[in-house]
Design a protein around this nucleic acid. Structure first.
Length: 804
RNA sequence: GCCGGAGUGGCGGAAUCGGUAGACGCGUGCGACUCAAAAUCGCAUCUCGCAAGGGGUGAGGGUUCAAGUCCCUCCUCCGGCACCA
């Protein structure tokens, strides 16, 4: 029966009570319990909690509460990632200081978070704009600088004209736009603060193997890092230089009929006197320099290039003299910026060789072929698979894979890997970020700001509106501060750090946030790290998740952290769409405001609705459905009326169903299948409504439901006369015997066709099952002869094969 | 092009050591209550068929007593990478 309840009458009351009782404080590590560190991605204080935050924080809360009720000491912290462009832009729009704006938002959002009624460990929190936080961000940076992990590099960077700053490779989307503002990214050459994430490429790939992460996330990271196994091989040039190329196919070296350099390659300008067609070459270099990435991609069908007249190379395998070209299909930023071209076995080289009429030599053929496949048919001349070698002197007949090693050895090459990953560009020409703690001496040499001067505070006396120049350059205070501490002629670094730096280590600070000596003591880390489960969004796969893994490894190498991998398990959630099936956006007018929903139907309903939509941890999109949320509200109203069915005794059926429900819920929660757990709870309620249950069963049910509907269950728990909080009660355990069915109904197939069912004990024998069929007239018409074969799977199926 | 993942009612989704496909919820239809409406309750709801029965999990093959689940060939959608040597 439906019994309406007034969520406003008790949700706030219990939230305040829980806070007063410090119910969810994680406290110090209690070694008598096992620990679990459950992390959710800390929010950006945009000023308003949206439905995505609810999905991100309220649903994992079910898991956290469940584990606590099972006696696990769970730390479930929350904080704010408060530096960064959106806050800065929003503040500029409102003509506010970003600090005022952000801090105001944090306060407001804390109130909104409270309305969720989550079991957050508020004693473990951090905010990245807190000077006591960013002090350590800066200190880590200085450690990285001193250990050559952070460096001032020169190179081509991604400039976002919308954000007025440089951004990292990871922050450029595959269509060449900015992940924040969707503006088209420009390439610029300028000095940049970089972190040597590339030095960690192998570990970042290899250590993925042991992580309990969804395979598609690991694959995305592997793709992003883009490790290729191959070899570096040197070719002698007629200029006297050696040119090193990278190839994944050293087995095809005998088929290398020319060499190609990227137009930006240093050896070209170094040898301009020796290049007889220099003006032509120079013109080509200029043309390609003008093309942006996008043009270069669009031009892939038509290969272009210029031969370096007067320069030749020697193929080290057969000492043949071969021509040298420059072409923009070879990228300066990948490998060595030079390739050996094997037109018979590489599509791009093939296209180029055909256009420039260069020699094509087949050196690999499919195994077992008597002739090279390409000799049979002109059109199939290209063969990119591996196979066995031909036209390769002493290596003829050798398998491609073996030949890779053998040929590399013979020519004195080196087996090596190369990567797609580039170093992480972390300097930003914006105001609202952590100042890079570097100062320059009068010669312009960079030095770290020593620990006693940290935090190296963000100056206040600047016009922070973005112009493309770093706003900190305009701070008289920063300039003065630098000269006072370091001496006349010293100047401060004026760039701030990428926000992704701040969020690369926040989970460590949560644990020991009052520590003034170190960012987090090793003892505390040993208590809690690694993070057992990290819930988050798919957008972080090759950004935050990659950066923070690198950061942790870099700290590990400096002896500052206890584990190499921060996150043991990763769960990516899906996306909540608007009721129209589109991504929620103000312009589409399809935004669901969680505050409105909570006011209307209550926090418990919103939480359960989100948990019921589909399995958590599968990246799919769920449209918000007003009818759907009403269904969950109805369910909780029925729960509210359930106490009317309490009686002295209950049918055996209800006892058994309760234990089956406990079993199902306890199995589903750890797998984040909250949807099917809720479904089981609904089945139980549907059944009880027609019958009765004891007070004992009622209490057990409340505890079962407590992680999903913390407020209502707490209210009903108290109304039922129980003492203490339902959330500190033990989660019910199921009785194995009671959770099993005494009889099962199984399908009966005759010749593989379903003809009906029989009900019998799960342990019934084949003969008993056959008897049940024979005595049921329903089956008689089909049993025209004695079954030739009987397949019986107890509790599952009975299949009779009747030959007629 | 390469690497992953996914295709099940009108909708969200259940069911995969191969064993009664469509749990649970939404929506819809009919009925009850009501002067009426809302709320609530009951029944129905994959599809064709009065029924008996037939068909059905993106398409087509295959293995099996039995296939949403395994194998092969395709198609579509989603995510990552992409002139990456």
């Amino acid at each position: 029966m439906h019994k309406k309840f007034d969520h406003k009458g008790f949700e706030k009351k219990w939230q305040e009570q829980w806070q007063k009782d410090n119910l969810y404080k994680a406290g110090d590590r209690d070694k008598s319990k096992s620990k679990e560190y459950v992390l959710v991605e800390l929010p950006y204080p945009s000023g308003n909690l949206h439905i995505g935050h609810w999905y991100a924080f309220a649903v994992p809360d079910i898991y956290v509460r469940y584990r606590r009720m099972n006696g696990v000491q769970v730390v479930y912290p929350m904080g704010f990632d408060a530096f960064g462009l959106p806050a800065e832009n929003a503040a500029i729009k409102r003509n506010l200081n970003p600090r005022e704006w952000t801090e105001g938002n944090i306060e407001y959002m804390k109130g909104q978070l409270a309305s969720m009624g989550n079991a957050f460990s508020w004693d473990k929190t951090a905010s990245t704009i807190d000077p006591n936080y960013y002090k350590w961000t800066q200190w880590m940076f200085t450690q990285f600088f001193e250990n050559n992990i952070a460096y001032r590099g020169k190179g081509i960077v991604n400039w976002c004209p919308g954000c007025n700053t440089v951004i990292a490779n990871e922050q450029v989307l595959s269509d060449g736009t900015c992940e924040r503002c969707s503006n088209e990214i420009e390439k610029r050459e300028m000095p940049q603060w970089m972190l040597r994430i590339t030095n960690y490429a192998d570990r970042l790939v290899d250590d993925l193997d042991d992580l309990n992460w969804p395979e598609h996330i690991k694959d995305s990271q592997r793709n992003w890092i883009g490790r290729s196994k191959g070899a570096e091989i040197s070719f002698k040039l007629s200029t006297g230089d050696d040119i090193t190329v990278f190839t994944t196919r050293p087995d095809t070296l005998f088929g290398a009929t020319y060499v190609v350099l990227a137009p930006e390659h240093k050896l070209i300008t170094d040898n301009k006197e020796k290049i007889s067609n220099w003006s032509e070459v120079e013109a080509y270099i200029k043309t390609t320099a003008k093309k942006d990435e996008q043009d270069r991609l669009n031009d892939t069908k038509e290969k272009t290039g210029v031969k370096l007249e007067g320069v030749t190379a020697i193929n080290p395998a057969n000492n043949e003299e071969i021509p040298v070209y420059i072409a923009d299909y070879v990228l300066a930023s990948y490998g060595t910026g030079a390739i050996m071209a094997v037109p018979a076995h590489d599509e791009r080289d093939f296209a180029f060789a055909e256009k420039f009429e260069i020699n094509i030599i087949t050196v690999v053929r499919a195994k077992g072929e008597s002739s090279a496949s390409n000799e049979k048919n002109e059109k199939s001349i290209l063969f990119t698979d591996s196979g066995e070698l031909i036209n390769s002197g002493e290596f003829d007949g050798m398998d491609s894979e073996e030949a890779k090693v053998a040929i590399t050895e013979k020519v004195g090459g080196k087996l090596t890997n190369t990567y797609r990953l580039r170093d992480w560009s972390v300097g930003r020409q914006r105001y609202w970020g952590v100042p890079i703690p570097i100062v320059y001496d009068p010669e312009g040499k960079p030095h770290i700001v020593p620990k006693e001067h940290l935090p190296w505070t963000l100056p206040e006396d600047v016009d922070f509106r973005p112009t493309g120049e770093a706003p900190l350059a305009k701070s008289a205070e920063l300039k003065k501060r630098t000269e006072e501490i370091f001496g006349k002629g010293w100047t401060p670094e004026v760039e701030t750090m990428d926000t992704f730096v701040d969020s690369s280590w926040y989970f460590l600070r949560y644990l020991d946030n009052a520590n003034d000596e170190v960012f987090t003591s090793l003892d505390v880390q040993k208590d809690w790290m690694p993070i057992d489960i990290y819930f988050g969004g798919a957008e972080h796969t090759t950004m935050h998740l990659l950066y923070s893994r690198f950061w942790q490894k870099a700290l590990f190498d400096l002896g500052l952290v206890n584990v190499q991998e921060p996150y043991q398990r990763r769960i990516n959630r899906g996306l909540i769409l608007g009721p129209d099936g589109n991504k929620m956006s103000k312009s589409k007018g399809n935004v669901i405001d969680p505050d409105e929903q909570v006011a209307r139907v209550g926090s418990d309903t919103v939480k359960m609705y989100l948990a019921f939509m589909g399995p958590y941890g599968e990246v799919s999109n769920y449209p918000w459905d007003m009818g759907g949320i009403a269904g969950l509200h109805r369910f909780l109203e029925r729960v509210n009326g359930l106490s009317e069915h309490i009686s002295e005794t209950e049918p055996k059926e209800i006892t058994k169903l309760l234990h089956k429900t406990i079993k199902k819920v306890s199995e589903d929660i750890p797998e984040f299948k909250f949807n099917t757990a809720i479904s089981a709870l609904m089945v139980f309620v549907n059944s009880v409504e027609k019958q009765s249950l004891t007070k004992e069963s009622y209490d057990a049910f409340l505890r079962l439901l407590a992680p999903f509907a913390p407020h209502l269950t707490e209210e009903l728990w108290a109304l039922a006369g129980n003492s203490g909080s339902v959330h500190t009660a033990e989660f019910p355990a199921y009785d194995k015997t009671l959770s099993k069915d005494e009889t099962v109904t199984i399908g009966v197939q005759i010749n593989g066709k379903l003809r009906g069912d029989i009900t019998l004990s799960p342990e019934a024998t084949k003969d008993e099952a056959l008897d049940a069929v024979i005595t049921k007239p329903r089956f008689a018409p089909y049993l025209t002869a004695k079954p030739a074969k009987v397949i019986y799977v107890p509790g599952r199926i009975l299949n009779l094969i009747v030959n007629d």
